[in-house]
Amino acid sequence: MPANDNTIDGDVYVSPRHLARATAIGDPGLDPLRDLGWELHHDDLGNAYLNAPDRKVRLGYLPEGDDDGLWRINAYKDPFGPPVWGACFNDSCPTEFVTAFTTALADVYEQGPDSYLATPVSGSKDRDPFLAVAPLINRGWLIDRPRWGVFAIQSPDGLAGLEYTTGDLDPERELTTRDARWQLWAGTSISRPLWYATASTDTPVALLKAVTESVSDPAPLPRWRDDTYSYAEGMAQLTPIVPPRPPAPTPLDVQRAAARRPAALTTSSVPRWSTTSRPALPGPRR
């Protein structure tokens, strides 16, 4: 359980985190790239677009898009050519997973095209696709029933999975449909998931690994109970977020408080009367 924080946005923790849903705002997913000075534009519908300075990486945050692909990120060798790789997170995908992707993207973009256009290579020390799966295996995810042409792995509760499709794929369909090389999802069915994310064949392994590390992180996510899906609420563990206690005063705080008190209140005095006082002694007889 994470430590209480005054900035926590929610009244419950959702565990496991893959049963949470998206947050109401997308700023956390945009911030890592905006911090690099990427150019931000909006259209008349309220969609947001981020462009890298060299115009070779673009992000679209599309609440008013044509489908449920809320986040679309593409990279290019030529700004006017087809994308080299593309990733998509749908409108229910937890925003923290998108933020993990864009944070890693900011890192590799700073390193240059050799990093943000790094094609996965089997057997490579730092570009082998298996490196993106390793965080899941290390945290107890299990290899699913083998299927022809698909490597699948599931979370311990069986309510999240990752699929890696082998063989040749249509590059255009990878960018526009769920028929992509990588698909990560949660729910009771991959055909009707709680949320999903996809990535095309040449998506850099460093970006994929950042997402799988975030998805498999054992720490729960804060959410508002009213925003949780009804069926997810029955499967997920919801723990109330206890309001943080005020911090205990330090010796310096006590000293400063004493210095602010009026002098009359800091001197000791004897109460004139109390319910525990002894009865007054009788006076002299006349």
Rank of each mutant, 00 (worst) to 15 (best):
P262H: 14
A264N: 15
A180G: 09
D253L: 08
P222F: 09
P222G: 02
D157V: 10
P218T: 13
N47V: 02
D44I: 02
F97A: 11
A258E: 12
R278G: 12
L33F: 02
S216Q: 07
F151T: 13
D107Y: 01
L117F: 01
L30Y: 11
G187W: 01
L131A: 14
T276L: 14
A106L: 11
D35P: 04
D31P: 00
S214N: 08
A24L: 06
K125Y: 15
A48R: 09
W148V: 08
L221G: 02
F89K: 01
D11L: 11
V270R: 13
G234T: 07
R192N: 10
Y49L: 04
W185V: 01
E172L: 10
I73C: 03
F101E: 02
I73H: 00
R225E: 13
Q255G: 08
P262S: 14
V98W: 05
W141I: 14
P282T: 06
E163Q: 11
P279K: 13
S15E: 03
D9I: 06
P246M: 03
P279R: 13
L265I: 07
T95K: 03
W141Q: 15
L19D: 06
M1D: 09
T276P: 00
A206N: 04
S191P: 00
P271E: 11
G69A: 12
S277D: 15
G158K: 14
D179Y: 04
V215L: 09
Q237D: 08
P204R: 09
E213V: 11
A210H: 04
G46S: 09
P271N: 13
D66M: 07
L59C: 05
R17N: 04
I190K: 14
R34H: 09
D43S: 07
K209T: 15
D43F: 05
G86C: 10
D11C: 04
A264G: 06
F101L: 10
Y164A: 10
P262G: 12
A22Q: 00
D54P: 00
L208G: 03
L62Y: 01
A280M: 09
R55A: 07
R272T: 12
T7G: 01
D227C: 00
L265T: 09
V133S: 02
G112I: 08
K209S: 15
